[in-house]
Design a protein around this nucleic acid. Structure first.
Lengths: 247, 247
DNA sequence: CCGCATCCGGGGCGATACTG
DNA sequence: CAGTATCGCCCCGGATGCGG
């Protein structure tokens, strides 16, 4: 990318990761760990193959990621974030947090990968009973299912399939996300097609963190111009939004 | 900007603020508050005037900023972040934090504005004696001077000129930044041209927060390929960098 | 199949000139 | 002061090819 030519740490950062697709490549590597070229392509629907190759080259030279040979059985190269690259997690986190209100409008024909849910889910869920035995919640939103697990470190999302989840939530991404963010009552979501199988207590255990939060997308909010609708629905244009604020 | 077409909060955020120059416009509005068109141009050296106009239009429509008429005496329009736009502060903060290691190489002919120093400065300085009377430190790095003030809320940078600062630090941006980040000893910086006038105790009071941190740019670090040199100089490629980590 | 390189059309971007 | 107009270039997107 052409440099901004400014002696400012924000501009310098954007010189490295401000290019189109770059931060989404970082997102994939953060979410999925070391990836093959093909895995990256699968997680970045819409990217041109030459662009992906070019970005990977640039990011390698910038010290953000490194390529390594996979262990003997398989002969392929893996792309993995360096320590410096992993420090971008907080940037991606904040971006993802800011972007959550934009998820209310599903828009026709958008791609979806279940592992992308990890950012909002780990933001919104909190284990209200960590002393009790761990539980698992499977989310089926279209693609591969993902599993939400309670761990001593907090609520985590893992891609591996768990044989006997304690509960299963099935439906469109916006219904699942609406319920998990506390913006949509479970009954309302069910009325609109969400299905919950297994132990309902699992949801109750994980959701309370989101309950404190006013509901920004309760029914059908007509999203007109953009983020404005979201700010207006919060009732006060100058107050911070209903989602957890930065830091 | 062309949408990524992904139902992911990170991609959605980048759909809005991922365009070139967009986040730097947000930076300016965060640092300087409501700005006129001309002020923005001055703080964004290198931007084409048509691009600035186009971005302002897009950001207004996205609800990130709003234009307002200035109070009666002057007849001009001001651009101000909305509440939604101000929520981008944490994104800019994290970007700026990540970019600080890139400041070691000054690169020929880069533009500089003193108010850009606010991000690193407020990151690194801490008032170790808040019970004592407030002090002010003026930084002269080329452009307009800025003043660092101790406040009940912490150390802040303000653009206004303070008549009698308790101390004055003059020198190149990288020398001033090196000292303030704790990466460069004051004596070493003086040997390379930094000048300190007034009460040296002011620096001692503000600096301790940075002292805990290993020095990444002690002498002349040969920056070769990119961020790698930084990671290597920290002594351990897998450990988090010497700057405060995210979150 | 995996990891690219090449080619080409269109549009975003950069620089300058100009205007109400 | 706050933009609009214009033009050239290069980045980006999409398709195809190709060696290991």
């Amino acid at each position: 990318m052409r440099s901004y030519g400014q002696y400012c740490s924000v501009a310098k950062a954007l010189d490295v990761i401000g290019d189109r697709w770059t931060l989404l490549i970082i997102r994939e590597l953060l979410l999925r760990g070391a990836c093959r070229y093909t895995d990256l392509r699968a997680g970045l629907p819409g990217i041109a193959t030459n662009l992906l190759a070019q970005r990977l080259r640039e990011l390698e030279q910038a010290g953000v990621l490194a390529r390594e040979d996979a262990p003997p059985p398989i002969a392929t190269t893996l792309f993995r974030l360096t320590a410096r690259g992993e420090q971008l997690e907080s940037v991606i986190d904040e971006l993802g947090r800011w972007g959550v209100p934009l998820m209310v409008e599903p828009r026709e024909g958008e791609e979806f990968r279940a592992h992308w849910l990890r950012f909002p889910v780990e933001l919104f869920l909190l284990d209200s009973a960590p002393e009790r035995p761990p539980v698992t919640l499977e989310l089926r939103t279209g693609g591969e299912p993902v599993t939400v697990c309670t761990t001593p470190e907090g609520v985590r999302v893992c891609a591996e399939h768990v044989p006997q989840p304690d509960a299963v939530l099935s439906g469109t991404p916006q219904l699942v996300l609406g319920v998990l963010s506390g913006a949509l009552e479970l009954d309302a979501a069910r009325a609109r097609g969400l299905e919950l199988e297994g132990d309902p207590g699992v949801l109750a255990r994980l959701l309370p963190a989101a309950r404190d939060v006013p509901a920004p997308l309760g029914g059908h909010i007509p999203v007109s111009g953009g983020g404005e609708a979201y700010a207006r629905s919060a009732g006060d244009a100058t107050a911070p939004g209903p989602y957890p604020a930065g830091r």
